[in-house]
């Protein structure tokens, strides 16, 4: 026994060196780089925040994924947009009162990942827009205040008019006012709108109790359910 114990300990050391090679890892999420600073900047008046972690897999599994895809009008694509992606929701507090949420999602841009964060009030209306990460030749234009300001005041209701596959916006939609500042950055612009719509749908599922579901024209089946 005495001879075996050091062997086991050494085994554990080795496991830590090699064992993790084949270990299991969760998919990458989307967190604020500096939450203290970013929360204060994105949500003026916030005095604190709580962090909630959710995933589609744990919340509802494949069925929920199917519903979300139906609302998005597109399926989750690629090897990184998976059911087990952990989503970090920052619940924003003012004293003891909850005043809103900040939530970010990853999107696939032309040259790299895009991280789109939205600050939302308690009704799911966008209060602020933030590209935490963007690799683009036109990063400056896309990250400009004017571009982000176009999203303020919009909610999921407005984005149901945006087709993430074709990139077409229904002219009557409030979201139609969002314009691409650089025509050459079309790919990143479309990815951004898709990310915003996906972000809002996830928040509606995870936080707002699907209060925007009835605005979804393609979601009749879900409503009936």
């Amino acid at each position: 026994m005495h001879a075996i114990r050091p062997a086991m300990m050494l085994g554990l050391v080795l496991f830590s060196v090699f064992g993790m090679i084949e270990g299991s890892f969760a998919a990458v999420g989307c967190d604020l780089n500096d939450p203290d600073r970013d929360v204060a900047r994105l949500f003026p008046g916030a005095t604190g925040y709580k962090t909630i972690y959710v995933s589609i897999e744990r919340r509802g599994g494949p069925e929920l994924l199917k519903n979300i895809e139906e609302r998005l009008g597109d399926s989750f694509r690629g090897i990184y947009e998976t059911i087990d992606v952990p989503y970090t929701i920052y619940e924003i507090m003012q004293g003891t009162e909850r005043i809103g949420y900040i939530h970010g999602v990853n999107a696939k841009g032309q040259y790299g990942g895009i991280q789109v964060f939205l600050a939302l009030d308690l009704n799911g209306v966008i209060q602020n827009f933030y590209f935490q990460k963007l690799t683009s030749r036109f990063g400056k234009e896309l990250r400009s205040h004017n571009f982000g300001a176009q999203f303020i005041g919009l909610s999921l209701k407005d984005f149901y008019h945006y087709n993430v596959v074709t990139g077409m916006l229904d002219g009557n939609s409030t979201a139609a006012r969002i314009t691409n500042p650089v025509p050459e950055a079309e790919a990143d612009f479309k990815a951004t709108l898709r990310a915003v719509k996906k972000n809002l749908i996830l928040m509606d599922e995870f936080v707002y109790g699907n209060r925007y579901l009835h605005y979804c024209m393609t979601c009749r089946a879900q409503e009936r359910r």
Partner: peptide, 16 residues
């Protein structure tokens, strides 16, 4: 890195 950049084979990377 691929996960963060959402890159797959055939995608482009930009050395800014």
């Amino acid at each position: 890195a691929a996960e963060l950049e959402q890159r797959e084979v055939g995608d482009l990377l930009l050395i800014t």
